[in-house]
């Protein structure tokens, strides 16, 4: 393969976990809930996914297990933040701290074990297009899934009654409740979806991106996914653009490190985090009115009756 398709393909691999995790959190935040536990759910997904894949010798089961594990943690979050109306910021932080520890415990026996790659799926005809073909149409199945998920989420949120209700709950939970919309149930479903996505994204990291488990391997990707949701300001398509921008940045940084240009490697490693702050800054300075965040975002809801 030539250089360009190779680089593009590695960008998709770097962007896919960010996109999936951010997509889940996007739905959660549209429903008016801020779950800061993405990093925790993601790394538990990575550990459980890898452990399950090794134990069953099936990467598919691993990916499923990762998503399921993320969902279980999300259930804990929902029990506290929705069931007991606890502070969402603090609860999410607790989930991340707990998740980092739990993932370390689960993953410990599997450190250093390799996993075979998941064979890519080449789409007929499309994969023969020069450059774009080998870059995007000979990819792993989860990449295709992520693209389908983007379309599905955009469709459900903007074109269906369920999506309308979810956004209504997020925009003003008191009004939605007064109209008889089951605020807490809708939020529970949204949170579970967010957990499923974060867990799947984590399993993607350990089973497809690196193909080994190492402690702390998410390295802040969950937080970057959270920043992408802010960056997207309510638009799924901008979420995708942001994820690919960051994927590109990650790859560029790796190439720069390998190329041993005169900059300290730590500066290059710090770039994604600095870029995240700059991206939020650019978004703020660009002067559009409102942040695009849901009206009731982060506020606990206790129904009167």
């Amino acid at each position: 393969m030539e250089m360009l398709p190779l680089v593009l393909a590695s960008i998709t691999v770097a962007a896919t976990p960010l996109l999936i995790a951010a997509l889940g959190e996007h739905v959660v935040e549209r429903a008016g809930v801020l779950n800061l536990g993405v990093e925790g759910m993601m790394i538990v997904g990575a550990a459980c996914g890898f452990a399950a894949a090794v134990l069953t010798d099936s990467s598919v089961l691993g990916l499923l297990a990762g998503g399921f594990a993320g969902m279980l943690l999300a259930l804990v979050f929902a029990g506290l933040a929705i069931g007991l109306a606890t502070n969402q910021v603090a609860t999410g932080l607790a989930l991340t701290i707990l998740g980092l520890g739990l993932a370390g415990l689960i993953g410990a026996p599997f450190v250093g074990q390799p996993r075979p790659p998941i064979p890519p799926i080449a789409l007929p005809i499309l994969s023969d297009i020069p450059i774009i073909g080998p870059a995007f149409f000979r990819a792993d199945p989860i990449f295709y899934l992520s693209v389908m998920l983007v379309i599905a989420v955009a469709f459900v949120l903007n074109r269906t009654r369920a999506g309308l209700l979810l956004r209504a709950v997020g925009e003003n939970h008191a009004s939605a409740h007064a109209l008889g919309v089951p605020v807490r149930r809708i939020r529970l479903y949204a949170i579970l979806f967010g957990g499923l996505m974060a867990g799947l994204a984590g399993a993607y990291l350990s089973l497809i991106y690196t193909r080994f488990w190492s402690p702390g391997m998410t390295a802040g990707r969950g937080w970057i996914a959270l920043a992408l949701v802010v960056f997207a300001a309510g638009h799924v398509w901008r979420l995708m653009a942001g994820a690919y921008l960051f994927g590109g940045l990650t790859v560029a940084q790796l190439h720069a490190q390998a190329g041993a240009i005169g900059l300290p490697s730590q500066l290059l490693s710090a770039l994604p985090y600095i870029m995240t702050i700059l991206a939020l800054l650019v978004l703020a300075v660009s002067g559009r009115r409102g942040s695009g965040a849901a009206g009731s975002l982060g506020q606990p809801f206790v129904p009167e009756r």
Binding site: G40, A94, L95, I97, L98, G99, L102, G104, L105, A108
Partner: peptide, 13 residues
Amino acid sequence: FDLTRFFMGLLLM
């Protein structure tokens, strides 16, 4: 030490 980390998150919850 991960057990302690886990416990800290649990305690906060």
